[in-house]
Amino acid sequence: DENEERIRAFALYKGIDPEKARELWERGEINKDDEEKAWREYK
């Protein structure tokens, strides 16, 4: 689903483990601007 892809995109963008990215996502600790930037680059 799209959230999974967004988490993966963010992990790649930040160079972090996707599981770590998922934890940040679930806790609401992902910066929305960074997340959008990562998503645009990923697509």
Rank of each mutant, 00 (worst) to 15 (best):
residue 1 D to H: 12
residue 42 Y to I: 04
residue 42 Y to P: 03
residue 40 R to D: 11
residue 15 G to M: 06
residue 20 K to C: 15
residue 26 E to G: 06
residue 26 E to T: 07
residue 6 R to T: 03
residue 17 D to F: 03
residue 11 A to T: 00
residue 30 I to Y: 10
residue 4 E to V: 07
residue 32 K to A: 12
residue 16 I to N: 00
residue 29 E to T: 04
residue 42 Y to V: 05
residue 39 W to S: 02
residue 29 E to K: 07
residue 42 Y to L: 05
residue 37 K to V: 11
residue 1 D to I: 11
residue 29 E to D: 09
residue 36 E to W: 06
residue 17 D to Q: 07
residue 35 E to G: 06
residue 31 N to S: 15
residue 15 G to V: 01
residue 16 I to W: 05
residue 36 E to R: 04
residue 31 N to T: 14
residue 7 I to P: 00
residue 13 Y to Q: 04
residue 33 D to L: 09
residue 25 W to F: 13
residue 19 E to H: 08
residue 25 W to N: 01
residue 3 N to T: 15
residue 16 I to C: 06
residue 24 L to I: 07
residue 23 E to F: 07
residue 1 D to S: 12
residue 8 R to P: 01
residue 24 L to K: 03
residue 41 E to W: 15
residue 29 E to Q: 09
residue 41 E to L: 09
residue 22 R to K: 11
residue 39 W to H: 03
residue 22 R to N: 01
residue 5 E to I: 07
residue 23 E to T: 08
residue 17 D to I: 05
residue 14 K to G: 03
residue 43 K to S: 11
residue 41 E to P: 02
residue 32 K to D: 07
residue 28 G to M: 04
residue 36 E to H: 03
residue 16 I to M: 09
residue 8 R to W: 14
residue 31 N to A: 09
residue 29 E to R: 04
residue 39 W to V: 04
residue 39 W to A: 03
residue 25 W to M: 07
residue 43 K to P: 07
residue 20 K to T: 14
residue 10 F to Y: 15
residue 15 G to T: 01
residue 37 K to N: 12
residue 11 A to K: 00
residue 4 E to H: 07
residue 23 E to K: 08
residue 31 N to R: 07
residue 18 P to H: 13
residue 19 E to V: 12
residue 9 A to L: 07
residue 4 E to D: 12
residue 30 I to E: 01
residue 10 F to T: 06
residue 16 I to F: 03
residue 15 G to F: 01
residue 35 E to M: 15
residue 20 K to V: 14
residue 41 E to V: 08
residue 40 R to L: 14
residue 25 W to Y: 14
residue 35 E to I: 15
residue 14 K to M: 15
residue 9 A to V: 07
residue 42 Y to H: 04
residue 29 E to C: 15
residue 40 R to K: 13
residue 34 D to T: 04
residue 10 F to R: 04
residue 30 I to N: 02
residue 24 L to A: 06
residue 24 L to N: 00
residue 37 K to S: 08
residue 25 W to D: 00
residue 3 N to E: 14
residue 2 E to Q: 11
residue 7 I to F: 05
residue 29 E to L: 14
residue 24 L to R: 02
residue 8 R to Y: 14
residue 38 A to G: 05
residue 4 E to A: 12
residue 8 R to V: 09
residue 28 G to D: 04
residue 19 E to K: 12
residue 18 P to C: 15
residue 27 R to H: 08
